[in-house]
Design a protein around this nucleic acid. Structure first.
Length: 710
DNA sequence: GATCCTCGAGTTCG
DNA sequence: CTCGAGGATC
């Protein structure tokens, strides 16, 4: 197939060639397939790099390490060298001005920089204490409690009383050398006073006090600059600035809480060490206390829960440490966690606010999803305005009514949840909520099948359903068309430019109408049209997933694609043939079969076919990788890559990556701050891997992993 | 028919 | 992350 030149923003010279007149493209040869792969990957990489550049430069909130960024950049460069025909002037590789190289040097930790185990309540704390006491062969010991400031862990290296280096934790062995930036923090002394040691590393937390954070955000708002989400992100961003002048302008502070290692003599206890650090002029963590025995430490930690908001900084718990170094040494370290210290974590932040109204959204599948409109309330660095209420039964179970004052919680630190009402504050006359009789969008009578949790709008052409279906079609994992979001799709519908996903592929003929839309210039139109064009080569499984067939998500779509190899073959198959696939039963088969037979869907398929969207895939047969049959689960934050990248790497090797731990799980890969999956793995006896083991396996099978290079 | 496992769908805020 | 529901298994 002749490749059209990339559309240019010259204006006026819209391509006149109609899409339908292309001679049907012949079956792709292997070389062509490789070509397409290269092009897709190149575009993917450009998007990724663009995205991460924005995170890094504009938002100060990078999601990947510089090493990972370098790996993406290198891969793009190599691909472009192999396929020079795909090089465009806007590629990140072609841009003048140096990309962010490995911007910071390496900071080597002479002693591993540890993280902490967590306990969430008194029972778990006592259990930790019992184990420690058992190992130390003592009944009890003195403990120190400290506020656990929510910031960024930092190590400071002092030689002869002078600050010589500062570094982040990184993976615990090597972090980033951010000395120049840390020197700009007022509370970090460049020189120590009094009796110091020849050389030592002290550790602590860099953070942004609440007051400074608020003031900074107010100023940014006045300047029209984007705001930081919370003090911790703001502090992390400030420390990773390439220009120390920027760091200097941010209101950072530091609190130290630990001696990393020392050449010279140190006191015998943690408490005395803190006093000594203070004498030298180092700012130790405020609100630190020594307790002669464990129950007193526990009481203090618990008392903090109520006081957490009264401090000038964000805290996410209380750290409890055994005071005597002799006992600390005796207990030692397991993995990356010392046995001699533990973080008493606060329960997820809860707050109360007024529930104004319960409203209903219509989902892609026609489900009616009630949600709460709340009086905005700040929680954990975000302002909560809405929260889902799942379904009618859930609302009744919790007895939530409009007008109630409700308890709100951020589950998993992100998703707001309405826990329940504060009954004492219920206004008179508050009535239980009822699902409306009619769909709020189409007005059709609502259907609530017996025994099902959700109520539905039964109208397949309910405008909400149709729009959501297109949103799903262009979304990640499906056709992945960048530049089309909820707003744009609504515009397209409102201006009668599309009626379904198939019409997207005729949009390039309506350039003038597109440019006339609000917030759509030539540039945007070119980008969107190019993204639509590129989506024609998405894998068959992505296309099938994009259809939005009920019960067909990414996994089932992949099964169908692999088993049948083309949309036509699926259409031709009987229910029984579809249900014969392992993992597909009668319900899914019926759903797929009905979708394929539906008249409206046949029209969409016809539009896609005419436009040249790939609807078949050769060699759908099982590609066996070296890890075929193995199942992995990822939890917690990995240091060297995102979970999605790790998952993709494992999948490329033929393994499957699940979201829940079972007996069949090969291993649970545990990163920093793991979730409940790690606990379940221990319970069930599934092997636990740390990141090192994962990297070792990936390396063994030749997967390129971004190494932290020198 | 019961139970376990896995997948799908919806979700908030920046 | 959570819940609900389909599929596989016993």
């Amino acid at each position: 197939m002749a490749r059209k030149p990339a559309p240019r923003s010259r204006g006026g010279s819209a391509p006149s060639q109609a899409a339908g007149s292309d001679p049907a493209s012949a079956a792709e040869t292997a070389a062509d397939a490789a070509h397409f792969h290269a092009r897709n990957r190149i575009e993917e990489l450009r998007d990724l790099i663009g995205y991460h550049n924005t995170r890094y430069y504009d938002l100060d909130a990078p999601e990947i390490t510089d090493a990972e960024w370098d790996a993406l950049f290198r891969e793009l460069k190599e691909l472009e060298e192999a396929h020079p025909e795909f090089v465009t002037p806007d590629s990140p590789t072609q841009r003048v001005g140096a990309p962010p190289q490995a911007a910071f040097g390496i900071f080597e930790h002479r002693e591993l920089m540890l993280s902490l185990g967590n306990v969430f309540n008194a029972d778990e704390f006592r259990e930790w204490h019992r184990r420690a006491a058992e190992l130390a062969e003592r009944d009890d010991f003195a403990l120190v409690t400290e506020a656990k400031i929510d910031g960024l862990a930092m190590a400071l290296l002092y030689e002869d009383g002078r600050l010589v280096q500062a570094g982040t934790r990184g993976d615990g062995r090597r972090g980033e050398n951010v000395t120049q930036n840390v020197r700009t923090i007022d509370s970090v002394p460049a020189r120590l006073r009094g009796r110091t040691a020849e050389r030592f590393e002290v550790r602590g937390e860099v953070y942004m006090p609440k007051a400074g954070f608020e003031a900074m955000n107010q100023e940014r708002a006045a300047q029209g600059e984007p705001l930081f989400a919370n003090p911790r992100n703001a502090a992390a961003g400030a420390v990773r600035q390439l220009d120390p002048n920027v760091t200097a302008s941010r209101p950072l502070a530091m609190a130290v809480y630990q001696l990393g290692w020392i050449d010279g003599t140190a006191p015998d206890t943690h408490w005395e060490t803190l006093a000594w650090l203070r004498e030298m002029g180092l700012p130790t963590t405020p609100e630190t206390r020594l307790h002669p025995e464990s129950e007193a430490a526990l009481a203090t930690a618990e008392a903090w829960v109520a006081r957490r908001d009264t401090l000038p900084f964000d805290m996410d718990g209380v750290v409890v440490k055994i005071n005597e170094f002799a006992v600390q040494r005796q207990l030692g370290v397991v993995g990356r966690e010392p046995r001699w210290a533990v973080a008493f974590k606060f329960p997820p932040a809860e707050g109360t606010t007024l529930l104004h109204k319960i409203d209903v959204n219509v989902g892609r599948t026609g489900t009616l999803n009630p949600f709460a409109m709340l009086e905005p309330v700040r929680m954990g660095g975000a302002t909560i305005r809405m929260a889902t209420l799942h379904n009618e039964d859930d609302i009744h179970r919790k007895d939530i009514r409009a007008g109630d004052t409700v308890v709100v919680r951020r589950a998993g630190e992100v998703i707001p949840q309405v826990v329940g009402p504060v009954l004492g504050r219920r206004p008179k006359g508050a009535r239980p909520w009822r699902m409306p009789d009619r769909c709020p969008v189409s007005g059709d009578p609502v259907v609530h099948p017996e025994g099902e949790a959700m109520a539905y709008c039964p109208n397949p052409v309910c405008p909400a359903v149709v729009r959501r279906t297109v949103e799903h079609f262009v979304g990640r994992g499906a056709m992945d068309i960048e530049g089309l979001g909820e707003k744009r799709i609504a515009q397209l519908f409102d201006h009668d430019l599309i009626e379904d996903g198939g019409d997207l592929y005729a949009l390039h003929e309506k350039r003038a109408a597109l440019i006339a839309l609000e917030r759509m210039g030539e540039r945007s139109v070119d980008n969107v049209v190019a993204a639509i064009e590129a989506s024609k080569q998405r894998p068959l499984a992505a296309l099938i997933f994009g259809f939005g067939i009920r019960h067909v998500g990414g996994e089932v779509a992949a099964l169908l694609a692999q088993h049948f190899g083309s949309v036509d073959a699926i259409h031709a198959a009987s229910r029984e043939e579809i249900a014969a696939i392992d993992g597909v039963g009668p319900v899914i088969a019926e759903s797929v079969s009905a979708w394929m037979a539906n008249e409206r869907n046949r029209e969409i398929l016809e539009k896609l076919r005419r436009a040249g969207v790939r609807m078949a895939e050769e060699g759908g047969g099982a590609r066996k990788g070296p890890l075929a049959g193995q199942q992995f689960v990822l939890t917690g934050r990995l240091e060297t890559m995102g979970r999605d990248i790790a998952g993709a790497a494992l999948k490329r090797l033929g393994a499957s990556v699940g979201s829940s731990v079972s007996k069949k799980t090969t291993a649970v890969i545990v990163g920093d701050a793991p979730g409940s999956k790690a606990a379940r793995a221990k319970q069930i006896g599934a092997p636990l891997w740390d990141e090192e083991q994962l990297l070792a396996v990936l390396r063994e099978h030749g997967v390129q992993v971004a190494e932290q290079e020198r």
